[in-house]
């Protein structure tokens, strides 16, 4: 098997203006190290990256969205998978790095270590373009297909345990959100953040922040 870091290296070379939502801990740190972009929303809690990415994909149907999720995370709330299948957004790619354990807190096994088939669950949930990959070349092929053809795509990437020792940049959620939202505002030509002045609710505390 291959490490998640090697697969993320391959993915980072392919990603351009896609919006990327990541799981927390190792996946977030490695991805931020390899692809430090304003289009990353990092460090979402277990069960949250894929449904959040689905919401983004629905809001911006012309923009590709990638969820970098994990087996422990998606297993916490499998309901996110049929939600994706129900909407079937063409612009969404879900990548599950399946190390078959809860690595960040001691590596006790997840149910995938005992045969739970996430790709099978995805297919049975209305996502026919679901596949399991076992090495870097297979992953690169699956990712390239996902980023160049209509989805939704669901890739279960079987990976070894282990997180690359990269500089840990502990982003703060609100800061990450502002950077991400300002990027979306700029690239999509929309206003998301709403000034207090615009709301008529009183005063504008920081005019410099809202001016662009």
């Amino acid at each position: 098997m291959v490490t998640r870091f090697v697969l993320l290296e391959r993915l980072a070379k392919m990603v351009k203006d896609e919006l990327v939502v990541t799981n927390l801990k190792g996946t977030a740190h490695e991805w931020h190290y390899l692809s430090p972009k304003d289009s990353n929303l990092l460090y979402l809690g277990m069960g949250m990256p894929t449904p959040a990415a689905l919401g983004l994909a629905m809001a911006l149907p012309h923009r590709r969205v990638i969820s970098l999720d994990g087996d422990g995370s998606i297993l916490l709330d499998l309901a996110g998978i049929p939600a994706v299948g129900q909407v079937a957004p063409k612009n969404l790619t879900v990548i599950i790095f399946d190390n078959q354990c809860y690595e960040s807190n001691g590596a006790l096994p997840t149910p995938t270590a005992n045969g739970t088939d996430l790709t099978g669950i995805a297919k049975a949930s209305g996502i026919p373009k679901a596949r399991t990959v076992l090495d870097a070349d297979e992953f690169e092929d699956a990712a390239r297909t996902a980023l160049t053809t209509d989805g939704p795509h669901f890739i279960t990437a079987k990976v070894e345990r282990g997180t690359k020792k990269v500089p840990i940049i502990m982003t703060y959620g609100r800061y990450n959100k502002y950077v991400f939202v300002k990027h979306v505002e700029k690239t999509e030509g929309v206003q998301i953040l709403r000034s207090i002045k615009a709301s008529g609710a009183g005063y504008t505390p920081n005019k410099e922040y809202f001016k662009d």
């Binding site: 949250m48 449904p51 959040a52 919401g55 983004l56 629905m58 911006l60 309901a79 998301i192």
Partner: peptide, 20 residues
């Protein structure tokens, strides 16, 4: 959109807001 549970629903709302 109908969702299977409210946690998924709230995350979906969050993603939609982040997308405008």
């Amino acid at each position: 959109i109908s969702v299977p549970n409210e946690s998924v629903g709230m995350c979906l709302c969050a993603g939609a807001w982040l997308g405008g």
